[in-house]
Computed example of a mutant assay.
Amino acid sequence: MNVIITGISGFVGQNLSRYLEENNCNITGLSLRNNWKLTANQDALIHLAGKAHDTANTSADEEYFKINTDLTKKLFNEFLQSDIRDFIYFSSVKASADIVEGILDEDHVSDPKTPYGKSKLLAEQYLLSKDLPKDKRLFIIRPCMIHGPGNKGNLNLLYKIVEKGIPWPLASFHNQRSFLSIDNLNFLILQIIENKNIKSGIYNFADDEFISTNQLIKIISQVSGIKCRLWNVPTGLISSVAKLGDKIKIPLNSERLKKLTESYAVSNKKIKRALNIINLPVSAEEGLIKTIKSFQSK
């Protein structure tokens, strides 16, 4: 199996390419920064490259559309003219919704509010608008928050808070969130490119179980061997502090508070039905424990 990957130097790209190579795939990285062209005799093109959501809100809107939308259009047009069978586009659940009530599935009417989400959705809409030859497949992947050893982000921030013995002051916020272990992501992509019976379409990627932030704090405490300290500070007070963080530089702002406390439950039933499986290889808790343990070695 010959596979091209854009964004191969990123966290997902490094892990995915290594995993596919271990499973008898020949991997070619493709940089889209300068002049590029698709090579012949390839089976799948995995498009990971893109501009990630900037939680500090310092990026210009046009940057998202230039990279996430326009570049994806150009790459897909080249794919249509090539002999490559599969195009796998890594979009985001944020292309569907910024706020989730209930459980998000692929039938949800997309209504993103941020430039990031809008740029991803516009790319999706363009891909779906094109006539796809019968011998080709298009997969639009919408992953939720991806994590794994070597990945930095809010999980690492939470780990540092627990490690330092700082009480978690947001315990009064009750939520249910979906995560995606890099191990489950790798497994799903390999299944897609190996199984020719899976139909084109949009697929959410998420672990099987939902985890609350309070549960996550407890898991981190258990792994770290540190007493779990959950403080139920009134939500109104926390929100006021976050608004202050929007104006001056402090660890908490409204965007970060939203990410840490909002509910965002994502269904992965569609992809599991397509693969005819009941569970993914790694449970949500197992994946989180693996990621958290990786923080301890640093």
Rank of each mutant, 00 (worst) to 15 (best):
E21Q: 15
L252W: 04
G287I: 07
E285N: 11
P143Y: 00
I271S: 05
G236M: 01
I277L: 07
I292R: 13
V12D: 03
T39A: 14
D183N: 13
L75W: 05
K134I: 06
I277R: 08
P115F: 02
C25E: 05
K94D: 01
V12M: 07
N154E: 02
N15T: 09
V282N: 15
L30N: 05
L127Y: 05
E106W: 04
H108P: 04
F87Q: 14
E262T: 03
I250H: 15
E285W: 02
A60C: 04
A123Y: 03
K269H: 09
A49D: 03
G225T: 06
Y19N: 09
T213W: 01
E22H: 06
L158D: 06
K259Q: 10
D135E: 15
G50H: 03
L38E: 09
E194D: 11
Y203A: 11
L80F: 02
N276T: 01
A52G: 07
K199N: 14
D107A: 06
G50K: 01
L104T: 06
T291I: 08
A284S: 15
V241T: 05
V266K: 02
N268W: 00
Q125R: 14
S9P: 08
L45F: 01
K73H: 11
T72D: 05
D107E: 04
F76M: 04
P234L: 01
S9Q: 13
V223L: 13
S297C: 03
G10E: 10
P112V: 01
G148Y: 02
E262Q: 15
A95G: 15
Q215E: 15
Y203N: 10
N232V: 00
D207S: 07
N2K: 14
S96Q: 12
D135Q: 11
L16W: 04
E285K: 15
E209I: 00
S92P: 14
N253M: 04
D43A: 03
K259M: 08
V109Q: 13
F173I: 05
S297R: 08
S129R: 10
K196V: 03
K298S: 08
K269D: 05
N24Y: 03
V223E: 13
H147R: 09
L138V: 02
D43N: 15
I8C: 13
V241E: 09
H108V: 08
N26L: 09
L190E: 14
E163A: 14
E78K: 14
S267M: 03
K134G: 10
D208K: 12
Y126A: 14
D70I: 08
Q42A: 04
I8G: 14
H53N: 12
S181V: 04
E101P: 02
L252H: 09
I220L: 12
S91K: 11
Q222T: 11
V109M: 08
A206D: 13
N276F: 01
K259H: 09
C228W: 00
S200C: 08
L170Q: 10
Q125D: 10
N195I: 00
Y89F: 12
L121C: 09
K298A: 05
N232H: 10
S294Q: 06
